[in-house]
Nucleic acid binder design. Structure first.
Lengths: 183, 183
DNA sequence: CTCATTTGAGACGCCAATGTCTCACCGTGG
DNA sequence: CCACGGTGAGACATTGGCGTCTCAAATGAG
């Protein structure tokens, strides 16, 4: 019996990534459980979102670990990160837009840590000479999040093939749209 | 007397860009009018959002016209577009996320036209050899929207200086984060 | 098998926001 | 001066979703 809390969170993430205004009832149905049961495990919508936040933070952190950003070139690190983060892209996109709604009073401090890790990665890339220095690490971090969200959305609605997700994001973020001479 | 409908829409856009869940009452207060008056001019929240949609489409279209994407190099065209779109960035960002909520049944056809114009611009850039061809026009279009939204947000919360908005977006989209040899 | 625990379904009450309405007020034009 | 159209403030009913509760059924442990 013992409800699989993890599984409920997964399906909630999948649903809310697509429809961020989904009802508690819809979330419950999507998870194949009753609304009452959902409420027994998550005190309310806030608690559910916070649990999803923790899940998202945990997954993004795992992706950062798996990417081993310190090893090899910064470019390779970024490619590994994008690949590692793909499964969590939808959830992260949902959480980012959700966070933008709050006034910042009860922001989960986990985001700061993640932001710092990503920004530090870009900064290292700049210091090693791989990344240009006229784009700030903070902006590159924001841009990475935005492109991950856009990529997840584009795949969702079928504008981009799912298999192209890592390539589209990493290539655009690294090399931009301009056709460079070296190609 | 005769309420300035345009001005009401402007302040509503400014408020909703920051807080997309703002109440009709908050929107009215922000415009300096009563809630009843707001309802007299916009039948409901839906009508208000649709009016904002038309405003956003109109402004984006105007930005596309002003950018004269056909003149000069594609790169210059893109830079002009980003500059021209900046004033409407917040509104567009709000509308994009708002659109993602709907199932697509009552989507304003104006977006298709705009998407087509932007995608056609990227395609021309590819055909002229300026833009790389491994990133699809559809993806470049989505990426442009995402970066505009991220830029507006980053400026909003102070992570990026307002004056850097065009440079950050255009440079990242054109050249990416990689430090190229030509620099 | 029996019992304790958990679940699903539904019935509430509650609350915030919406949409409508009334009424007093005020500016403007006649 | 006065009539009129538009406005602000507030009252009101409605709606949709939330959170709580109850109870019968199902499930699993012992």
């Amino acid at each position: 019996m013992t409800l699989d809390r993890e599984q409920v969170l997964r399906s909630a993430a999948a649903l809310l990534s697509r429809k961020s205004t989904a009802t508690m009832d819809e979330v419950a149905r999507a998870a194949g459980i009753g609304r009452a049961t959902l409420h027994r495990h998550f005190a309310g919508r806030d608690a559910l979102v916070r649990a999803l936040e923790n899940l998202g933070i945990q997954e993004f952190e795992a992706a950062l670990d798996a990417a081993a950003l310190d090893e090899g070139s910064a470019e390779e690190g970024l490619r590994r990160l994008v690949i590692a983060v793909e499964p969590a892209a939808g959830l992260l996109s949902f959480l980012v837009t959700e966070n933008q709604l709050f006034e910042g009073d009860d922001l989960n401090e986990g985001w700061d840590r993640l932001d710092a890790r990503v920004a530090a990665f870009f900064r290292r890339g700049q210091e090693s000479g791989e990344f240009r220095i006229d784009l700030t690490p903070a902006w590159l971090t924001e841009a990475l999040y935005a492109l991950i969200g856009a990529g997840a959305w584009a795949v969702q609605v079928g504008r981009v093939a799912g298999q192209d997700f890592p390539h589209m994001i990493a290539e655009l973020l690294l090399g931009g749209a301009r056709r460079s001479v070296e190609q």
